[in-house]
Every structure is written in C-alpha cells, then in structure tokens.
Design a protein around this nucleic acid. Sequence first.
DNA 1: GGACATTCAATTGCGAACAATTAAATGTGA
DNA 2: TCACATTTAATTGTTCGCAATTGAATGTCC
Lengths: 168, 168
Amino acid sequence: MSRRPGPEWVKRERFVMARKSTAVDPLRLDNQICFAVYSATHAFNRVYKPLLDRLGLTYPQYLVMLVLWERDDVPVKEIGEKLFLDSGTLTPLLKRLEAAHLVRRTRSREDERQVLIALTPQGHALKEKARSVPQSILAASDCSVSELLAMKDEIVALRDRLNAVIGE
Amino acid sequence: MSRRPGPEWVKRERFVMARKSTAVDPLRLDNQICFAVYSATHAFNRVYKPLLDRLGLTYPQYLVMLVLWERDDVPVKEIGEKLFLDSGTLTPLLKRLEAAHLVRRTRSREDERQVLIALTPQGHALKEKARSVPQSILAASDCSVSELLAMKDEIVALRDRLNAVIGE
DNA sequence: GGACATTCAATTGCGAACAATTAAATGTGA
DNA sequence: TCACATTTAATTGTTCGCAATTGAATGTCC
C-alpha cells in the first residue's frame, strides 16, 4: 500500500494534470454542452430533411405547421412566442408558406396590427402526410420513447432557465 | 368503490381520449425532443451573444476558435469534421476571421488542395479573454457541472446515433 | 380630444447552414 | 504516361435567425 509512493504519486499527479489541461478544460470543445446541443440540432435537421422534402417543407416551416395543426387562425405574434422566433424570421417564412398555398394571411378585423395565419384546405390535408414523420424520427433516434421524453424534459428545463436569464 | 361505475368510467375514458389527442399526440409541438433541442440551441445563442460580442465573435466563429485553441494549423476539412460543418459554411466564416486578423489561411505545401488555418498572435491572445465565457454560461444554466456533463453525454450519444443514420 | 407611448408586422442587412456545382490537385490503374 | 476517379475548397443560390429600424394601429394619460 505505502510502497513505492514516489513514482505512483508522480504518475497520478501527471494524470490529474493531463485531465486538467484537456478533459476538464472548460474551453475544450468536447466539454461544452452548448456544442452538443448545437450539433444535435444539425443532426436532427439532416435526418428530417429527406422526410420533409416529401412534404415540401423545411424544418422551421414544419414547426409552424405543427403550431397551426394544433390551433388555426393564429396571430404571427403567438406563433413567434411558441417557437421563440420573431417577425424577422416568420414574415418571409409565412410568405413562402402562403406562396405554397398552405396558409392564408389576413389582417385581424378587431386589431388591424395583427396578421392572422389560417390553414388552407391543402394545409390541413398535409397533416395526414406528416403523421409518419415522428415515428421515422423515433426510429432514427434508436432510443425508447420514455428515454426521449425524459431527455426532452431536461432540455426544456435547461432552455427555460437560459431564457429566464435573457430577460435579466 | 364499485358504486356509480358508469359516470366515472365515462369520465376516465374522456380523460384518456383527451390525453391521446393532445398530451401524447406525436405531432404535438411540446412532445418533440427535436424542438426542445432546436429551441435550446437558440436559447444558448442568445445567452452567448453579449458575451461573444465583447470578443468580436459569433457563436460559430467561437466554435472554430475553440478548435484552433486546441490545435493550430489545421486544414479546413478537419475543422469541418469536428464541428459537423462543410466548406460552404466554413469558407466565408474563415474569411471573416481572417479579415478580423484572428487567423491566417495558407495552402498546404504537401497538398495544394488543403487550406491550413493558423492562429495569428491576436487569435492566440483572444483565448485569455475567452476564459471567462464558460463559467458565465454555467451560471446562466443554473445547474451543477455534473448534471450538465450527464446531459451533454446523453445528447452527444443521441446526436451520434442520428448521424449514424444519415450515412445509411 | 390630443400628445404620447406601446404593440405588431414588415423591412433591411448580416451571418450562418446547406445543396449543388465548379475547379484544381492528387491518387489510381491500365 | 494518360485517362479516370477522388479529394478539397470555393462558389452560387435558397432559407433561416436576429438586431435594428420603420410605419401603422392601438392604448393611455392629461
């Protein structure tokens, strides 16, 4: 136990120092959860791409359609709040969805500042074609539903804590 | 216990149906882990923004600098492999870093196809100013290091499974 | 009612992100 | 050596994402 303390101690010290300079270095790429999240977003995007191509949607457009499939005739503002996006992103995106005949954009009669987004019949119909998407993603995740839901809850909690800091 | 089974049964059935049509609906926005990851990425970006503004970097530029601070004189290809980005993204980004005098771009002498990215003295020096960034992010996360590392490992594992599917 | 602030969407400009293509350098096989 | 494929960056075009600004509609206070 206490034999040869010198060399072993030196070895362990080197190991600790090596870890400090690489494995636990807070500036090291592999240690950053934000990069994990960032790169996972892109990985999801690449898996979604071929599935959404068949629907004629990009991923952010798909998110907007998810919102509208839950509730129709929604002001731009509300879509932005649900997706954490602003009008600078949504206005051109919604115009593209309108050009694709999936939504209509109309000024609210009660409040002329608001633009209400409503699904067209084609927009409604697209929901049926979209039903197979989530299970394809689930298969690609190669993970149980319960594991994914648990991860989702953790990530949402982290996101909400981050968003809380933004408002100061 | 067994009294009034009719009304209670009906009520529970309604509850189950309600859950099926909303809480467990796979097309529902709140159930999608991909949206959790997507929105967490944006939340991280918004927290990073003011910190990186002081360094004169965007978040993707910061990622490239993290790579270069670990190892200098790296071909574009290798940066792309580490960050999961292609030349279409990296070429203009690296030109902006070059315009900011943080990196130099030189053709490899052994293989003229490769462009090697090396830090300038200013690029090296910026690492010191960047040291405070991770702990600011940690504080904003309002979470223990061990929890974050555990989440990171889960997300990386998910990302790698997704990326494995891309290659088919 | 009138001056003022607020809200909401649109716009502009910049920086990613990626598909698809191009062009040059390198590798391979006959 | 020559034809051909492969590798590597760069380029082009489209779509996000956001900061900052604009302009119109609404709300508020006196």
